[in-house]
C-alpha cells in the first residue's frame, strides 16, 4: 500500500533531521533504498472503480475531435475583431 502525501512528508522530515543529527547513520540507512524507481504506484485509499475512467476516455476523445475538426483561427486582428490590446488578454 502506498504512502499518503502527508505520510511521505513526515518521513522526509524525519530523514532530513537524521541527516542533520547523524549524517553517517543517514548515509548508511539510505544505502538500503538505492535502485532506480521506475513507476510509483498511486496511493489507493478506496477500491478502484473502472467506471470513473470512462469520462476520462470520453474527454480525451472530445478534445481530439475538437483539435481535428475546428478550423484554425489566427487570433489576430483579421478574424477576431479587436486587437489583443483591447480584448484578447483580459476582461
Amino acid at each position: 500500500m502506498g504512502l499518503s502525501a502527508r505520510e511521505k512528508r513526515a518521513l522526509d522530515g524525519i530523514a532530513d533531521r537524521l541527516y542533520v543529527e547523524d549524517p553517517l547513520l543517514a548515509e548508511t540507512l539510505s544505502s538500503f533504498a538505492t535502485g532506480a524507481v521506475t513507476a510509483e504506484p498511486l496511493p489507493v485509499r478506496r477500491s478502484p472503480f473502472p467506471g470513473v475512467l470512462i469520462p476520462v476516455a470520453l474527454l480525451a476523445a472530445i478534445m481530439a475531435i475538437m483539435a481535428v475538426v475546428l478550423p484554425p483561427i489566427s487570433g489576430s486582428t483579421a478574424e477576431v475583431a479587436p486587437s489583443p490590446t483591447h480584448a484578447l488578454t483580459r476582461g
Binding site: I73, S74, S76
Partner: peptide, 10 residues
C-alpha cells in the same frame, strides 16, 4: 476551448 480561441499566432 480557450486554448483554441487563443489562435494559431498566440
Amino acid at each position: 476551448w480557450m486554448t483554441y480561441g487563443a489562435g494559431t499566432q498566440a
